[in-house]
Design a protein around this nucleic acid. Structure first.
Length: 928
RNA sequence: GCGGACGUGGCGUAAUUGGUAGCCGCGCCAGACUUAGGAUCUGGUGCCGUAAGGCGUGGGGGUUCGAGUCCCUUCGUCCGCACCA
């Protein structure tokens, strides 16, 4: 009987559920292995063939590890809060919980068809109160802690309160929004409200007025990683800057640890590099420039303190708090006009015309603390408020932006660095600033003649001595804005007394998301929770109206999987001690600067509190590539309903039209299906070639509008889950992006049928014999054991599949039906094609699941050969092959090769200069 | 502009340490069988050439007995960051 995949797959999927085959428990007797997929947001569109790629890879790895004796934790869940469900709710009035549940059910159905080995008893959903209780709990903990830079960890806020009461800020080295200085007396004199406000400056979860990315279309603020090129990542709506009071997480406190932590984890270089860029560490100096006739001091950050003698002006960001103080009455009108204009321009516009130089003079002069020269203070939007101090010292000769600015406004451009091997030059002849990374100093007082690194060092020492500056490390990483003015998210466990925020008692958690009549802001512009009835504490204090962002629920889900039903803790110490961290995390690169930063931050915080035992959550991370679509085209003759086949289209004036890839096979159009596809084409006519209509094709993003979406359900129906699994892996290296082309799937399907036929004959009878295997058969098996184990270990699933094909081809040629060979082969193949392997495993007489089998042991003895086919090369070109005993010494191999009659032909009478023999590899005869 | 990845048949790809380039599969060609199917099986298939042979891993150069692999240079594609001081 033929391989009946649909019956087999149904049978074993049921068996796995009935027998709880994938249930996992803590088992100290076995080594643990934790394999995690990035859990999906359940969208309404369902899964397409690209989504399960990473899930299949991790599933194969999980099953492989289990066969190798590991206790494998392999869970799945849903990132269930999110904007699409809420947008849908706004349009239809349907509660987002209902939409979400429906989508989850659909996802589950699709996932189940593919035969994953998830322990579904550990499923988490971020919108489940039993889950988000712990999201709220972590938030409370962050509110109750601050980051101590000396201890390099989070400490309880009470210890800070005690410190303030006894010594004020004296000697404090803590992460803060602003650097504050006050005495114990001043602290003790503050009101409760003032003290609370001050503590927000240090808390790891804090409320502050900041510039935020406001997206009017979505009616909410967004975190930096949710904004791409001035537009929202979800929906592509414009984003503008706005000042708002928001909750933030002090991620920046962990910047240094987030950076150094990267060195110890096994992630791809590109991903680490993305995180390093995002964290953006730069080492430099913070310097103070006094302002003439004023007690205002300008603080700036520079990585090039050595060029301070080349500073001829200062620039403030338009949003800088110093603008008001430094603008003279004469300049006020001009400055106000400029600031008004910059406000109108969106972030997008500002970025778009980077080249355009604009700015305005404040009327004030700063004093260069090294040269004591008076220099004008300008305002320009090329200085960013959010980076450094929002003010810079401009060195026009050696910075292209400063140079352009100086040219536009006729400011002096003195050269201070001369590149190695060059002479000082006349800067008025320059068309741009010149590089100053290497060279020696001129026009720089006590720095003259020094090379750049020495000058930087000397300047740092000088400014520290004189008290006009200090060495400082600056980070690009900003604190994460944590409030969303939306409905479908975790409520904050926060209430207010006279505008001062307080945390709910832990016993009140979870604070459940209330019902509202509409999912829109209130008439007075408050977030949707403003519509909730009785949204206050038992004592009548109003509760927070914002909800948490998408990344809140995904920041610790990997910990919850370890102990998903625990009502007393996020994760018990026992469960955490056993499972420790994620050994293998598979997911897309798109989370590089969002989820993967936030969850590392979250984990480090919990580590500081002693809740978790590992500082880094994800030991190894593999990024699967994107599956692109492969679109098909038909060519319509303009102004007609006639379509011309691909290779004839150049004879006509045609229009290229996307056609549904599901009615195209091997680029040949099913013309009847095409006519039925769209009423417009009901009467379509075709100009064929060789009786066929051939379609054009292109690789594009997989999307509905390109008609190139392939649904895994369709594939499972036509070929079975095992074929889908195998084909997804066979497509190419896991990390690489590649197009999905259903055409190739026949190859792996044929392979499975061929494998089936090694076991079962046409009449459904077992072919298996108990004969002793031949050396040749053992060689085939052991070669495959070695190759597949190596391949799986290095995530080269594509080559593993091809080695299975080679193996089955060889065994078919050898007409091998021996149990001693085929039984171990089933175990090798089981992680890839679990349904078929379970079925055959049972048929050959096993009573328990193949998941509990043992990975066969590799024996190198079976691969030993007595002879070797030496490739014989002349000047590096392979000419013929020579079979020689494998253990023949090099000198004799050389003799045999040189004396061989075929060699004489290739030497063409030339002299042998040298013979290279690498035993067991090659022979190269150098002639000339 | 800075940083990263990559470039091999008609297509997806392989070559784990510098050692036989093109494994495996699709497609294509030929044949067998047939209930004529988008089925199955067998053989062939890098390019040029009847052949002998020559040429071949984006282009150019180098190191080496030997380079897809290492170095320099150049072109191209993709990704990330980007007035970051």
């Amino acid at each position: 009987m033929e391989y009946n995949f649909s019956e087999i797959e149904r049978k074993w999927q049921k068996f796995w559920i009935d027998n709880k085959t994938y249930k996992t428990e803590v088992d100290p007797a076995k080594p643990k292995f934790y394999v995690l997929d990035m859990f999906p947001y359940p969208s309404g569109a369902g899964l397409h063939v690209g989504h399960p790629l990473g899930y299949i890879a991790s599933d194969i790895y999980s099953r492989y590890k289990r066969l190798n004796g590991f206790n494998v934790l392999h869970p799945m869940g849903y990132d269930a809060y999110g904007l699409p469900a809420e947008q849908y709710a706004i349009q239809t009035g349907q509660h987002p919980a209902i939409t979400t549940e429906k989508n989850i059910a659909r996802y589950r159905e699709q996932l189940d068809k593919i035969g994953f080995s998830y322990d579904w008893d550990r499923e988490v959903k971020t919108c489940d109160p039993n889950y988000y209780k712990w999201t709220q709990w972590a938030f409370i903990k962050m509110f109750e802690h601050y980051y101590d830079n000396d201890a390099q960890k989070a400490l309880p806020i009470e210890s800070l309160v005690t410190r303030f009461a006894t010594q004020g800020t004296e000697g404090l080295n803590a992460s803060s929004t602003q650097e504050l200085h006050f005495s114990a007396a001043e602290w003790n004199a503050k009101s409760e409200e003032q003290q609370q406000e001050t503590l927000l400056n240090y808390r790891l979860a804090y409320l502050a007025d900041t510039m935020v990315n406001w997206c009017p279309a979505l009616g909410t603020v967004l975190a930096n990683d949710e904004v791409k090129d001035g537009f929202s990542e979800r929906g592509g709506h414009p984003v503008e800057q706005k000042r708002m009071r928001q909750w933030l997480l002090r991620v920046s406190a962990y910047a240094e640890r987030l950076l150094t932590g990267l060195d110890a984890i096994d992630w791809s270089d590109s991903l680490k590099e993305i995180q390093r860029n995002w964290i953006g560490r730069s080492e430099g100096a913070e310097m103070i420039f006094p302002v003439k006739d004023s007690d205002v001091q300008m603080k700036i950050f520079t990585t090039r303190a050595d060029t301070v003698f080349g500073v001829t002006f200062m620039v403030l960001a338009p949003e800088s708090e110093l603008v008001k103080a430094l603008t003279t009455p004469e300049q006020r009108q001009e400055v106000d006009a400029y600031i008004e204009e910059t406000k109108k321009r969106t972030e997008r516009e500002r970025q778009a015309d980077v080249k355009k130089v604009s700015g305005v003079f404040t009327g004030s002069y700063a004093i260069n603390p090294l040269s004591n020269e008076e220099i004008p203070v300008w305002i320009s939007d090329y200085v960013l408020a959010g980076y450094g101090t929002g003010a810079i010292m401009a060195v026009p000769a050696h910075d292209s932006r400063d140079f352009a600015f100086a040219r536009t406004f006729n400011l002096p451009i003195p050269q201070v660095v001369v590149p190695l091997g060059e002479e000082p030059a006349d800067t008025s002849t320059w068309s741009d600033s010149i590089d100053s990374k290497e060279g020696y100093m001129i026009n720089s007082g006590f720095l003259n003649g020094l090379n750049v690194p020495d000058a930087i060092e000397k300047t740092k020492q000088y400014i520290a001595q004189k008290g006009i500056g200090r060495v400082k490390v600056n980070f690009r990483l900003r604190d994460a804005i944590f409030s969303r003015q939306r409905y479908w998210g975790e409520p904050f466990p926060v209430f207010y007394k006279k505008n001062t925020p307080y945390m709910l008692n832990e016993s009140k958690l979870p604070l459940q998301l209330p019902e509202v009549d509409k999912y829109l802001p209130t008439e007075s512009g408050e977030p949707p929770l403003g519509r909730a009835i009785n949204w206050k504490t038992d004592d009548g204090y109003p509760l927070e109206l914002n909800t948490m962002p998408g990344f809140a629920g995904s920041s610790a889900y990997y910990l919850r999987y370890m102990d998903p039903c625990n009502n007393n803790a996020l994760v018990s110490a026992e469960a955490n001690q056993y499972w420790q961290d994620v050994d293998l995390y598979i997911g897309g690169t798109e989370h590089a600067t969002g989820h993967l930063i936030y969850s590392r931050f979250w984990n480090k915080f919990l580590f500081d509190l002693g809740i978790v035992c590992k500082d880094e959550p994800f030991k190894k991370l593999v990024n699967q590539g994107m599956i692109q679509g492969r679109s098909n085209f038909v060519y319509r003759i303009k102004g007609s309903n006639k379509f011309v086949s691909l290779n004839l289209k150049n004879d006509y004036d045609v229009m290229e039209i996307h056609v549904d890839v599901n009615i195209v096979h091997n680029d040949t159009l099913d013309v009847d299906a095409f006519r039925a596809w769209n009423p417009e084409y009901k009467n379509a006519e075709f100009i064929l070639e060789n009786g066929k209509y051939i379609c054009g094709w292109a690789v594009e993003k997989m999307s509905k509008s390109m008609f190139n979406v392939v649904n895994p359900d369709t594939i499972v129906e036509q070929y079975g889950a095992d074929t889908l699994r195998l084909y997804e892996m066979f497509l190419g290296p896991l990390e690489q992006s590649k197009p999905w082309d259903t055409n190739g799937i026949d190859g792996v399907h044929k392979f499975l049928r061929k494998t089936w036929r090694l076991f079962v004959d046409k009449d459904n009878a077992l072919k298996i014999t108990n004969d002793a295997p031949s050396p040749e058969e053992l060689k085939v098996l052991h070669r495959t054991i070695k190759k597949t184990a190596d391949d799986v270990e290095r995530f080269a699933f594509n080559t593993a599949v091809s080695s299975f094909m080679i193996c089955v081809n060889d065994l078919t040629d050898l007409q091998c039906h021996k149990r001693a060979i085929l039984e171990p082969l089933l175990v090798l193949l089981a992680p890839f094609a679990p349904h078929m392997c379970e079925e055959l495993w049972q048929r050959i007489g096993n009573n328990s699941t193949i998941c509990d089998a043992k990975w066969p042991e590799f024996n190198a003895q079976h691969l030993v050969e007595s002879t070797f086919q030496y490739p014989v090369s002349f000047n590096g070109k392979m000419r013929y092959k020579l079979e020689l005993p494998a253990d023949m010494p090099a000198s004799e191999v050389e003799k045999a090769a040189v004396q061989n009659e075929q060699s004489i032909k290739w030497m063409e009478g030339k002299q042998i200069k040298k013979v290279i023999v690498v035993p067991g590899k090659i022979i190269n005869i150098v002639i000339g």
